[in-house]
Amino acid sequence: MKKILYISLVLLLLTACSNEREEAIYPAEEAPQLEEILNKQDTINGYRSVLNDEDILVAIDIKRMKRFNKEKIEKNLKKQLEEKFPDKEILVTGDLKVRWELEKVMDNQLNTEKLSETIEEIKSLSKEET
């Protein structure tokens, strides 16, 4: 019984930190500067980004111990992006929901029309306060 406990504890500890970086931008090859900025960030484990003509949505996976500064990191990144893309509306968030929604967008390979619709939806979702 004790052995099982120890083994499972060790397994838990081992599986807890996998350092795979997951990066994706959709539509791909749209904005090389975006990729450049996002790759520079050392506070995140990965990101998903979706963009069209007006908006850029970035869902970042903040490193575990950096999550205490979540809002600061988001704001910081948003500022950097706003400097590069002054004509676009930018949303940077560490929220899981947005990340999952963006993954859905990527999996479904939405066309331009559907894409802007979904982007609006996600934007309103993250604005909700309560």
Binding site: L96, K97, E128, T130
Partner: peptide, 17 residues
């Protein structure tokens, strides 16, 4: 929380309720 985020339109913040 994950269940509500995944299957309902809740974000991390709103899923708490």
């Amino acid at each position: 929380t994950f269940f509500y985020i995944r299957f309902f339109p809740f974000t991390e913040r709103t899923a708490a309720n």
